[in-house]
Write a protein that binds this DNA or RNA. Structure first.
Lengths: 180, 180, 180, 180
DNA sequence: TATGAATGAGACTTCATTCAT
DNA sequence: CATGAATGAAGTCTCATTCAT
């Protein structure tokens, strides 16, 4: 379906060139549709971006919720989040909201907030279960986690860190750091 | 001096609205100069951004080098870096390179690389001195640190975390996480 | 087709006001299109000028080549060139390259060179056939001819010489002047 | 005196780069004065150009009038005009009016008209004296002469015709062409 | 639905001109 | 008289968006 083709093309093109260097016609070309067609499915270019980010986060959320039904321990859950975040394709759109936070407004905030909230819950439960230290703000820890993952992800592109098991190292440091 | 006024205005405006939503005339207005005046001091809009980032990183580097002459322990040094990074004004420009990494090219890379290298050295020395674990890539840890700081910084604006001693918490977690 | 409308409008406007006093929006208005439309057909304003000049010279060349198949005598050929050059519409674009020679670079040179070369051949053949004097540089004579025609053309606009058979007089003088 | 320095600088710079590619500050730099100084002597950039052209033509006219007091024959006079026109420095400003005719308006016209008138008189007198043919418009002949000279002059720069005695050839052709 | 030529607002930049020193 | 930093109008060009087909 074209709706999806456009979204995927947008993610690809924007990931390569950045949002503001990605003219609508470039997205259209990549999607194999005419420029005007995009406006049959989306109200504006911003809307395409918004939808792409929405899609990525929603998918991410769903993936987590599903996994958490069988993965119950805080440690396992954090590990899973890190692993999933590191998966390049899924997270490219998540990463995109960086470039775009200043003007995408509450939509962008909302998704990030949801990601953060998800992590906070894991942390809080870990704290209740006595697995994690209690002397730390769960909010700070959650941003902490998101920040590391996102930076490693984007640096990987430039710095050639692709080989390393980054998610593993991150979780390892984090656990020691916040473990009780 | 106008040069400085323009640079400061640019950092302010871009921090608020993002580089690509910051027309030159907005920067000019904020700086209290005419549009054309900017081009007496900078060759192009890109050049303003580049100069702002250069300035911020250079200042940051100098501050570190100075401080490290009396602060010798890896722990103290990391703490100092975190503290300095968290200082809003100084780091806003550092943060800006995020939005802009894809097209600012090597200039942007170089600065980040220098920051990373600085942290890596601290880590490596800590590993040699037996203060830090040896089973981790110092490069990953350095990006780790940068990522956390930058995310916390940018989230602070939105999430109202301003009160918390974020730098302190970061360093605390990091030390436990990578301590030997 | 818009491509042609724009080219014609450009020639008209530039002929009236000069290239550098012809903002793109004036050309667009004359062509009855929006400013941006011009950039669908031409990469830049310079490109419009270049294309206009190209078109005029090409048309001129083709016209000559065609005519020369039946017009074999040097005298007839020169007469034909003069006549064609004098035709206002066709030659306006040829005239334009004057204003613009310094910065249109080799494209402009090339066309003029071709015109000159065409005349030189006629002259040289005339010299071989003994119709023209041999003690003159054919290159000088060719520029000679081009210069006269172009000046008469541009003066005609201002000086109201429109009525006179200028081409005829020119060729007459030229023949007596260079005739053997 | 600065007035003169500015005028000379203007002619030099404009001859090299064309009027519209000659920013005022380039003329100022060449003249060794500040930008603003130019406006103490001239009302506008156009005025500088106008004055430069005025100066060149006036000088040219004076030179002719002077010479014509001893040079009485039509042939000698035409020869002298051609020779003087060909002198590079003197004629550069004359040549400049080409680029600029469309918008310099009557001032430019007037000078050219004067040049033309001067030649026409020579021609007319030649016709009366029976030296020149009577079946030609003296106006056409005058433009004829101006056009050739100007083209040869400007082509010389590009085509490397510098060596040839162009003025001589021109006059030679012209005489045969219009001689009785 | 789909197209893509056309639009025009708005961005960046240049440069003639002014004016406080 | 002289300076040159500053101004801002105007120019070129891009690109999100529309609409006739």
């Amino acid at each position: 379906m074209k709706y999806r083709r456009i979204l995927d093309a947008a993610v690809e093109v924007i990931a390569e060139r950045g949002y503001f260097h990605s003219p609508v016609n470039a997205i259209a070309r990549r999607a194999g549709v005419a420029d005007g067609t995009i406006y049959l499915y989306f109200k504006s270019k911003d809307e395409v971006l918004r939808a792409a980010i929405d899609m990525a986060f929603d998918q991410f959320s769903r993936q987590m919720e599903e996994a958490f039904e069988t993965l119950r321990g805080p440690r396992e859950q954090l590990e899973y989040i890190a692993q999933a975040h590191m998966d390049r394709h899924a997270s490219m759109a998540i990463h995109m909201q960086r470039e775009v936070r200043p003007f995408l407004g509450e939509s962008s905030q909302r998704h990030l907030a949801k990601y953060i909230e998800m992590v906070r819950e894991v942390i809080r439960r870990g704290q209740q279960e006595g697995v994690f230290r209690r002397d730390m703000s769960d909010e700070v820890v959650a941003h902490f986690m998101f920040g590391v993952m996102d930076e490693l992800l984007s640096s990987a592109v430039f710095a050639g860190l692709e080989g390393e098991d980054m998610a593993g190292q991150v979780v390892d440091v984090l656990f020691r750091g916040i473990g009780a």
